[in-house]
């Protein structure tokens, strides 16, 4: 199983608008340099979500880094279980008819 790990990214924006990630900071605070990055278009992540994807060479391995324009966040596939589904809540009736407008 894998879970999404949101990372902070040091990004270089070129004059033409292309983005090159240069380094990432993992959730535990350790920083990794990206020696080479390749934009591969939109991809669904193994952990969760889908977004724009860069293959980043970190310590000799090509690892996908994702960016979602919707949330503006960057993430990678991390090891471990994804967060569990929320527990179901019992149904609570909303008593809308109890409403009385002011002055009545």
């Amino acid at each position: 199983m894998s879970r999404p790990v949101f990372v902070s990214v040091l990004l270089e924006m070129s004059a033409s608008g292309a983005r090159h990630p240069l380094a990432i900071t993992w959730e535990d605070g350790s920083r990794y340099e990206i020696t080479r990055s390749l934009y591969v278009g939109r991809r669904a992540a193994r952990s969760a979500g889908s977004g724009e994807c860069w293959l980043c060479r970190i310590a000799g391995r090509d690892i996908p880094l994702y960016y979602s324009p919707l949330s503006g966040r960057w993430w990678m596939d991390g090891k471990g279980d994804p967060e569990p589904a929320p527990a179901a809540e019992p149904y609570k009736r909303v008593k809308d008819r109890d409403y009385k407008p002011a002055g009545q």
């Binding site: 669904a44 952990s47 969760a48 979500g49 967060e83 589904a85 609570k92 909303v94």
Partner: peptide, 21 residues
């Protein structure tokens, strides 16, 4: 489910807000 893959393992539904009826 794409955003939260653990929802695949449980019955889940997208539903509107009952407070707004």
């Amino acid at each position: 489910m794409l955003r939260q893959p653990s929802l695949k393992t449980v019955p889940c539904a997208v539903a509107g807000d009952p407070a707004n009826r």
